[in-house]
Computed example of a mutant assay.
Amino acid sequence: MEILASRMLVRPADYARSVAFYRDALGLAIAREYSGGTVFYAGQTLLELAGHGTPEHPGAPFPVSLWLQVRDLYATQQDLHGRGVDIARAARREPWGLHEMHVSDPDGMTLIFVEVPEDHPLRRDSRC
């Protein structure tokens, strides 16, 4: 399987407090903001704080998901299913325009496989 990009996705208990911590206390630069989320540069990866949804595992010490971008989500779903991988949540288009599918690793961490459609803002150069 070809992974095009990845990031750590955190759904914090207090979104505003977490944004202030990563932005102001740690001084991480913002890669992009969207309605309900902030993505920070964190070295060779991205750290996304999502203010939408709820933590995947309420009460867990650190509710983290791994965000993995693929070229064709529906083909990836079919491939993983063929390999015997349980699909926790089938591929679908989300209200924010991305196509997402969820898989759980053996320890219960959520892997979010994502396809970015051609017309999505992530595909546009924000410098234009």
Rank of each mutant, 00 (worst) to 15 (best):
I3S: 03
I3H: 01
L4G: 02
A5S: 14
A5D: 08
S6A: 08
R11A: 08
P12W: 09
A16D: 15
A16M: 13
R17G: 12
S18A: 13
S18M: 14
S18V: 11
V19P: 08
V19M: 12
F21V: 08
F21W: 07
R23M: 14
R23C: 12
D24P: 12
A25E: 13
G27R: 07
A29R: 14
I30K: 15
A31P: 11
R32T: 13
E33V: 09
S35W: 11
S35Q: 14
S35R: 11
V39Y: 12
V39K: 09
V39M: 12
V39P: 09
V39E: 13
F40D: 04
Y41I: 13
Y41G: 08
G43Q: 00
Q44G: 11
Q44F: 11
T45R: 15
T45G: 13
E48M: 13
L49A: 04
H52V: 06
H52G: 00
H57C: 11
H57Q: 14
P61H: 09
F62V: 10
S65H: 02
L68D: 01
L68Y: 03
Q69H: 02
Q69F: 01
Q69I: 04
Q69L: 03
V70G: 00
R71I: 05
D72W: 05
D72H: 10
L73E: 00
Q77H: 06
Q77N: 11
Q77G: 07
D79S: 09
H81N: 14
G82K: 15
G82T: 15
R83M: 12
G84I: 06
I87W: 02
A88C: 00
R89P: 05
R89K: 12
A90C: 15
A90M: 14
A90F: 15
R92L: 07
R92C: 07
R93V: 13
R93K: 15
E94M: 06
E94C: 01
W96V: 00
W96T: 02
G97N: 11
G97Q: 05
M101D: 03
D105H: 05
G108P: 12
M109E: 06
T110S: 04
T110L: 09
T110H: 02
I112R: 00
I112A: 04
F113Q: 01
V114A: 07
E115T: 02
V116L: 04
P117R: 06
H120D: 05
P121M: 13
R123S: 10
R124C: 06
S126V: 11
S126T: 10
C128K: 14
